[in-house]
């Protein structure tokens, strides 16, 4: 009765393009397998870096966020718990939090106001929507975002890409805190359902 079977390097096709493959790579990385980690990097780096760019804007800082993210992923790979979400979500959560922390601590109030002006009125969303027509995945995301009400989308994107806390969003939009909380949660529920993410 094998208790903890070692992973057998399979000569066949890679074990799926999806999350099962990433979970296996994380498992191997947690045991110090640098080649598996390189593979993991190759399969996730456009998202980690892209998300960092989206939040911190500055390319050099986005690189630093990505760098810190992967060092954290390498160190904490053994602590990934599939019960709490997919491996990609875990990695992106680390990246997002680092990006947001950076934006919040480094930025003056004035810069934040300017950033808000640049982000406001959903123009960021429109810009994104324009630039994504090529990829099927992106089109799917675009449709899912479009299923949110405008105020839900605004609250979700200001927090996720703008790095604002819900209290800041509430102040910026002059909408009560409870309303913002609800818009964020309801928006994510719609988004999740539109994307067909398993509950």
């Amino acid at each position: 009765m094998p208790i903890d079977p070692a992973p057998v390097p399979s000569p066949g096709p890679a074990p799926g393009e999806g999350t099962a493959g990433l979970a296996e790579l994380l498992r191997r990385a947690s045991r110090g397998d640098e080649a598996a980690f390189a593979d993991l990097y190759d399969r996730t780096s456009t998202k980690v870096y892209g998300l960092a760019r989206r939040v911190v804007r500055d390319p050099a800082q986005a690189e630093e966020v990505a760098q810190e993210t992967y060092l954290a992923v390498w160190r904490q790979a053994a602590r990934y718990d599939s019960a709490q979400g997919g491996p990609l979500a875990w990695i992106l959560t680390i990246a997002h939090r680092r990006a947001v922390d950076r934006v919040r601590s480094a930025e003056s109030a004035r810069e934040r106001d300017l950033r808000f002006a640049a982000l406001g009125d959903g123009s960021d969303y429109d810009m994104v929507a324009e630039t994504v027509t090529t990829s099927l995945e992106a089109a799917r995301v675009r449709r899912a975002l479009a299923s949110l009400t405008e105020v839900q989308r605004e609250a979700v994107l200001l927090a996720y890409y703008g790095g604002y806390t819900y209290k800041e969003v509430s102040e910026l939009l002059d909408v009560p805190l409870g309303t913002i909380k609800t818009r964020m949660r309801d928006g994510l529920i719609r988004l999740r359902d539109a994307l067909g993410v398993e509950r």
Binding site: A83, W90, V128, V141, L191
Partner: peptide, 14 residues
């Protein structure tokens, strides 16, 4: 968990 998984798909556009 489901929100995190959904957001990881949203990142595709970025």
């Amino acid at each position: 968990r489901s929100f995190g998984d959904a957001l990881s798909v949203v990142v595709d556009e970025s």
